[in-house]
């Protein structure tokens, strides 16, 4: 159970770590949207430059970043194999066939683009969680969603629920460990038997866990009450989020990349440089 780590914050000092979480969130949204505009390998090259820049600035080791791809590796392989095998191309594109299996050149390229899109979609948010603590993230989210509170959307409450949940995950993991040890000491068997047996074996762990969660929630509510917590009304912050020059610089860089990707896709200035005339931009 111990291996569970949510929010894989990597504690080093870098300009990316110091950035305003709100700006990072905005940039990440732009980044994700940007990826869906990409149709060409050159476009992915542009994103790669952006990512390389981000990783270099973050001081997070490259290997650590690449390790985050481990979770999607099966998904990527599955997607690639499926899209190669079931692509329907034209006859002159066919490179290899055996029975009903046909592989087209365009199918391969398509699969490659799909794989790259998945990889880049994971790497972006990964960089966000590497450089931003969960607390900063919820703070940023709360601040960004603030306008919604005018239509009576409980933004502050949502944020506080999120931060409490994030805070309690390690505690609950530890608690689960303890209870599991205690039941193991009474010869409980969690490792053998079929899936139903194993699920049933978890009952002696889950019930005490629920009970203690409720107790903990009660205690926390009391502790908040006794320190006069009354929701968002009139509440100020100790750490005020502040936007600096570097945040705008980062946003600017993001916009430049976004524009480059859009230009590549829509060929804005055919009179100036006609991208569609360049053959290697596929």
């Amino acid at each position: 159970m111990r291996e569970i780590t949510l929010g894989q914050y990597y504690p080093v000092k870098s300009v990316l770590h110091r950035m305003d979480p709100r700006m990072k969130l905005i940039i990440m949204v732009l980044y994700i949207v940007m990826i869906f505009f990409i149709k060409t390998f050159i476009g992915f090259g542009i994103v790669l430059i952006f990512l390389a820049l981000t990783i270099a600035l973050s001081h997070v080791p490259l290997l650590k970043v690449l390790k985050s791809l481990k979770v999607i590796i099966i998904l990527v392989i599955f997607t690639v194999v499926m899209s190669v095998l079931f692509y329907n191309g034209t006859a002159e594109d066919l490179i290899w066939s055996a029975g009903i299996l046909k592989i087209y050149k365009e199918g391969l390229l398509n699969a490659g683009r799909m794989a790259l899109r998945l990889v880049f979609l994971v790497l972006g948010p990964t960089m966000l969680t590497f450089t931003t603590t969960p607390v900063e993230l919820t703070d940023g989210l709360e601040s960004l969603l603030k306008p919604l509170s005018y239509i009576k959307f409980p933004v502050h409450e949502l944020a506080i629920i999120m931060s409490i949940a994030l805070r309690l995950i390690p505690t609950l993991v530890e608690e689960t460990d303890k209870i599991q040890s205690a039941q193991k000491a009474r010869c409980a068997d969690f490792e053998s038997g079929n899936i139903f047996k194993r699920a049933k074996a978890m009952i002696p762990v889950l019930i005490p866990l629920f009970v203690s969660s409720f107790r903990r929630a009660d205690d926390l509510a009391d502790a908040m009450d006794s320190r006069c917590y009354r929701g968002a009304k009139g509440r100020t912050r100790m750490k005020k989020l502040k936007v600096h020059f570097r945040d705008f610089a980062a946003l600017f860089v993001m916009c430049v990349f976004f524009f480059a990707v859009l230009w590549l896709r829509y060929n804005f200035f055919p009179a100036l440089i006609d991208l569609s005339a360049i053959p290697w931009i596929i």
Partner: peptide
């Protein structure tokens, strides 16, 4: 033989009442 060992060595953890479930 974990079962044999664990019935031989009984262990009462800190705050054992938090393990009650039935």
């Amino acid at each position: 033989d974990f079962k044999k060992l664990r019935s031989k060595v009984g262990m009462v953890f800190q705050y054992p009442e938090y393990q009650l479930f039935a």
